[in-house]
Structure formats: C-alpha cells, structure tokens
Design a protein around this nucleic acid. Structure first.
Length: 603
DNA sequence: TCTGCTCCTG
DNA sequence: CAGGAGCAGA
C-alpha cells in the first residue's frame, strides 16, 4: 500500500474508492486528465457560467449536449435505483447476501419487536437535514436550468448527430469490460499487482470515474475540436457539481469542529504503512502425499499488500498452532473489473446519504432495537444534534451499509466520505425528493459483514465460546438471540467443514490411500479449495497455515475412523469433534476491531 | 433450566 | 444459513 494513501484527504480517498472498482488496470486515458486545466482558452468562465447560452454557440454543440444529457440522465438513473420500491436495486445479484440477510433479520422480531423505539435518532437528531436539502434543491434547480439551456442551444444541430461507433469505444471502458470476474483464477493472483501511488487519486480518480461513465455512452464520432470541447465541458461540469456538493456537505459534516481531524487520525491508524512482510518459510512438506492434497504448492502469493501494524493490531499471541499473521487484503485491482460490488456499494452509499439528507427518520429507525437505553453511545444529547447522529448510534447499521465499502474505524469516521460519494453518483437530481429511508432495514443485529468476519475467524477457531465472540464482535449488541445466532453460524461452519472432511477422507480411501499421513491439505488441494470457497469466498484473506494443519489433521482423523470402520457407530464422529475442538488457535487481535475485516473488502 | 451441540430439513 | 428436535452437561 502506498504510504501516501494514509495522507490522502478523506474526500480524495472516497473518490478513489469509488473509482477503483471499475477502473481495474486502467490509467487515465490521456495526460489531459491530470489537471484541472484552467488554462484552456475555451474555458473563459468558471463553471458557474455554464448556464450562459452564448457559451454554447459552437459548431460542436451537439457533443456537449450529449454529454450533459448523459450526465443528467445518469444522475437520475443512479438515484432511481435507490427508490424504495426498486427491489432490483436492493436485491441485486451483485449482493446476494443482502437479501438473505434482510430475510434473516426479519426473523428476529420476537426479540427485537417488543422494544419500543427510543428517543434516539428521532427528528431532533437530524437538525442539519432541511438546510442541506434546501441547498441541494437549489443545486438541483441549477442543474435543470443548465440542462434546459444546453438543450435549447443544441437542438438545431441535434439531427446531425452521428450515431455510429468510434474509437471512443476502444477507450478504458473496453478494458474494464474485458476483464471479467470469472476469468480471475481462484487463488491469489500474482498479476494483481498493487497499484503504485494513490497519492494523486483525488481529483483524477473522481474524474476518471466520470470519464468511464461518459465513455460508456459515447458511441459518437466527434471532430477533433469537439473532443477538446468535450473534455472542457466534462471537467467544468464535473468540477462545478463536485465543488457545489462538496461545499454543501462539508459544511454540514464539519459542523462539529474537529470531526475531520478525528477522521484524519483514524486514517493514519488504519492505513497500512509501506513495509511488506515476507512470507514465512514454508514448512517441510512430505513429498509423497496423496494426490489431491499434494499438488505442487503454489508459491506463496505475496503480491498483495499485507495488513500489518495497524494501530489496533497487537503482536499476535503465539497460538498452539502456527498462526500466520499474513492477512492479505486484495490489492485494489483484485476486485474484478466488472466490479460486482460496485453497484450495490453505490446504492448503499447513496442510501446513507439519503439518511443524512432526509427529514427525520421514520419509525424504522428504532422499531427493532434490542439494546437497552443504557448502552454506550446511544441517545447522547450530542448525537441528537448532529445530522448523522442517528447513524452514529448504529455502528452495525453502517457496517451493514458499507459492507463493500472501505476501511472503517468504528462507525462515524466513514461518513465524510459521503460528499464525494455523492458527487460520483451525480446523485443530486432526486436525492432530496426520494428518500429510501424505509428501505434501509435498520436493525441492530448481525449483518453480512459480521458473517464474513465469523467465517474468517473460523480459520482460527472452530469452537468459539460466546465470550470469545463477544470479545471479537465489539460492535454487536449481544443478547441471547444474537449470541445463539452466531453460535449457530459456527455450528453451520463446522457442519460444512466436517462434511467436506468426511467426503475427502472417504474419497482417499476409495482411491486406495492407506497411510493417513499422506493426507495433507495444501493450498492447492481440492479440499482446501472447497473450504476456502466457503469461508473466504472472495479470497480476500490468506488462510493461515494453522488452519491447514487442522484441516490435515481432521482429514486424517476421518480417514482413520472410516478406515477402521468406526463409521458404523452412530456417534463415531464425536471423538473427532472432541479432538478438533481442542485445536482452536488464537485469533489475531485485529479481528477485535469492529471495522475488521472491512479493510479486506476494500474494492 | 439453561446453554450449546449435532443432526436434519427446507 | 436458519429453524427445530433431541441430547448432554453444568
């Protein structure tokens, strides 16, 4: 990871997060993208002067018209996806767990229902909302005004548009489309190199994000002069909108002085510094191992950036089994180019934004909160005054919303990302009017992020105690139901684990293996692949070696038991369970962070 | 009784 | 993955 990345401004960082998922392997198409280009002779006026019709009296006006149309339409479209009734947006296949999770949480009302909504998060906590709404409304009006002008100016030439394709189609977008998720190898890719510097990502990334959007709808052939005009128009328009929205939302978000300072600190703490940790020496491996376990061990992929030395990461306690501290967040290119998470993440971000901008929350906000009023961070008078106060009250809400989102120190620090997020979306058009507030399903409880984290924890512990779970999920308001749900998760994890073990043990037997020592689970083995797919689907996490040890041992135990014919005993697995239950490793401290493993999900 | 686990089912 | 049944230990 670039050491500079920690120094990026929050807004810049947010921009880069938005841009990256869809920008894999891309660079800015041309150097002209790099600067704000205020010197361009055709750009004599600041962006605010766009509304002047005279400015558009150019022979290539239709190109500009198309651009602006695209922008404005894109703004509408992106926000339409947020409409509560738009089930497609929420239940997008890009985020299958979301729908499932919603369904799951709905099953909790027995415990959550009786708890009455508290005073927290009520209308009083959204003091800043109307003001922002008003300003955004003005912005929206300006946009409409602008659109109208452009349409008027360009109308006479509209018929001259060339609908054919052009070299524009060969731009970055085609790269993006080419690299599909399915083409990515299962294992850690060595070609997912870490992007060099992210220090200049702020404006550039922002612009690139827009660029892709534009190009995706840019099949027209434009005279070369028009290209320049095009760029100017893009830049100016993007800049104008960005500045306007940034200023508005920053004004609100900066309301409590020092908030961004706090944000900066948390950034420093969360962003890894430059060093890389070398792969520990590999264990000696028996050369005569069973075929499905002995495929040549792939060189330990270390192309990723190591998650290391986070401020909240203490040195790991030595586990009984060697615990690798290598936790490799995928380099940001690691997320497939067709970025399955991009759409939902945008939607979610906009939903959060809508919360901020909306009027007071509906009863959904509190109707299902199991926690008692004495819980930390609830209903503080301070939070009631902040626009995001209600959000702050629910770290789990945020983590639910930002599942694909980047780094998060607990809760609040993430919020300043929103302005840029919104700019990227161009989500001005409808934001203040369409408030999908009720679609947020805000509930205390477990979210997909927690599930993901639990799965990763399974690599270290198969039989976590409830106390351990409480320690490692500090952002979860534990109660009986939540605890049992999480325990149930691990029970399900074990079930899958043991089923796989038994299956592969039997397969080894049927393949004629006689020596259980031959059975070693390696990173290339089929068994590991199955397990990794289940617990670490995105391959965001490097499975610790200790898990391979345990898996090998489990496999051998199953092999021995089945070989000895013990499986005729109905409870023949119990001794195995007993053995395995004693082999839990210590979980790295980093897992105690409530924001973990969101860092891994970054892009 | 409560809690946690496995097994089975959907 | 969740729900439920059944079981076992504290």
């Amino acid at each position: 990871m670039d050491p500079n990345s920690g120094l990026l401004s929050p807004l810049s960082r947010a921009c880069s997060h938005l841009a990256e998922p869809c920008m894999e392997g891309e660079r800015s198409p041309a150097p002209r993208e790099q600067g704000g280009d205020p010197h361009f002779p055709w750009s004599p006026v600041p962006s605010s002067s766009f509304a002047d019709p005279d400015w558009f009296c150019d022979e290539n006006i239709q190109a500009k018209r198309a651009r602006v149309e695209t922008i404005v339409q894109g703004m509408c479209l992106s926000l339409n996806a947020l409409v509560p009734g738009n089930a497609q947006a929420r239940d997008s296949p890009y985020c299958p767990e979301k729908a499932q999770e919603r369904k799951r949480k709905q099953s909790l009302p027995t415990q959550q229902g009786p708890l009455k909504p508290g005073p927290v998060g009520d209308h009083g906590s959204r003091k800043g909302g109307p003001r922002v709404r008003e300003q955004l409304y003005q912005l929206k009006q300006q946009l409409r005004h602008l659109q109208k002008h452009i349409l008027q100016a360009a109308e006479p030439r509209d018929a001259a548009q060339d609908p054919g394709g052009s070299e524009m189609d060969k731009g970055p977008l085609s790269v993006k489309q080419r690299k599909g998720y399915g083409s990515r190898p299962w294992a850690v890719d060595s070609d997912h190199h870490h992007q060099g510097s992210r220090g200049d990502l702020s404006q550039k990334e922002k612009h690139r994000a827009s660029e892709v959007e534009y190009q995706s709808e840019e099949p027209r052939v434009l005279p070369c002069g028009a290209q320049d005009l095009l760029e100017i128009l893009r830049k100016e328009l993007t800049g104008a909108v960005s500045q306007a929205v940034d200023s508005v939302l920053q004004k609100v978000l900066l309301d409590p002085p020092g908030h961004l300072t706090q944000l900066g600190r948390s950034f420093q703490g969360l962003v890894p510094e430059g060093s890389s940790e070398p792969s520990p020496p590999e264990r000696g491996i028996c050369k005569d191992l069973f075929p499905f376990a002995t495929l040549p061990r792939r060189a330990q992929p270390q192309t990723g950036v190591l998650l290391r030395n986070l401020s909240l990461a203490n040195p790991l306690d030595p586990p009984r089994y060697p615990v690798s501290s290598r936790m490799i967040p995928r380099p940001y290119q690691g997320r497939p180019a067709n970025c399955p998470l991009t759409v939902p993440s945008h939607i979610q971000e906009n939903q959060i934004l809508s919360q901020l901008l909306s009027h007071g929350p509906s009863d959904h906000w509190d109707s299902s909160l199991p926690q008692d009023s004495s819980s930390q961070s609830h209903s503080s008078p301070e939070s009631a005054l902040r626009p995001w106060g209600a959000v702050k009250l629910r770290p789990s809400v945020l983590s639910q919303q930002q599942y694909p989102l980047p780094f998060t120190s607990p809760g609040l620090e993430r919020l300043p990302l929103l302005p840029s997020v919104k700019v990227e979306q161009g989500g001005l058009q409808c934001a203040p009017d369409v408030l999908p507030f009720s679609s947020l399903h805000i509930q205390e409880g477990l979210n997909p992020g927690h599930l993901k984290k639990a799965k990763l924890m399974f690599f270290f512990t198969r039989y976590p105690s409830s106390n351990l779970l409480k320690a490692y999920f500090p952002d979860v308001q534990f109660n009986r139901c939540i605890t049992s749900q999480m325990i149930k998760w691990f029970s399900n994890f074990r079930e899958f684990y043991y089923i796989q073990m038994e299956k592969f043990a039997r397969q080894a037997i049927s393949d004629g293996v006689t020596n259980p020592k031959m059975l070693v689970v390696l990173r290339d083995s089929e068994l590991f692949r199955a397990l990794n797919m289940h617990y670490n689907k995105g391959n965001d996490f490097e499975v610790p070696d200790c898990f391979l040890e345990i898996a090998s041992l489990t496999l051998q135990e199953f092999f021995r038991a089945v070989s000895a014919g013990k499986d005729s005993d109905p409870s023949w697995k119990k001794p195995i369970y007993k053995i395995i239950s004693k082999l839990d490793s210590d979980i790295p401290e980093i897992f105690k962070s409530s924001s973990y493993p969101q860092e891994l999900f970054r892009n």
